[in-house]
């Protein structure tokens, strides 16, 4: 999996630790989006034909194509279901999240 990761972050303790102006570093993720999800996509690798349609249509870029099998970054998938809706062979199932 080759996706940006959440970086360590703690709020500045004194005023001089704040950056000058309202700036922040790029590629600086401090929280995940997994909590938004009510259903999660699961890829059936047996059925998947590796057409990469899901990789193409994901608004969050949460599907990684760098390995042999497609992987989903569940830290940042919001469970919108576009991947499952667009999959031409129905290899992706949306499964209810349970705590």
């Amino acid at each position: 999996m080759d996706r940006p990761k959440v970086k360590g972050w703690s709020y500045p303790k004194s005023i001089d630790q704040f950056p000058m102006g309202s700036t922040c570093k790029s590629d600086h993720l401090t929280s995940i989006n997994a909590g938004w999800r009510t259903v999660k996509p699961v890829i059936d690798q047996e059925v998947c034909i590796n057409c990469l349609k899901c990789f193409l249509v994901c608004p969050d870029g949460a599907i990684d194509k760098s390995s042999k099998e497609l992987e989903i970054d569940y830290d940042f998938c919001k469970g919108c279901g576009i991947c499952a809706f667009e999959c031409p062979v129905n290899a992706i199932k949306m499964i209810e999240e349970v705590k």
Partner: peptide, 14 residues
């Protein structure tokens, strides 16, 4: 495969 816009807080399906 590299993402340059990642971990944003847009609505699901945006």
């Amino acid at each position: 495969n590299k993402e340059y816009f990642y971990g944003h807080k847009a609505c699901g399906g945006c």
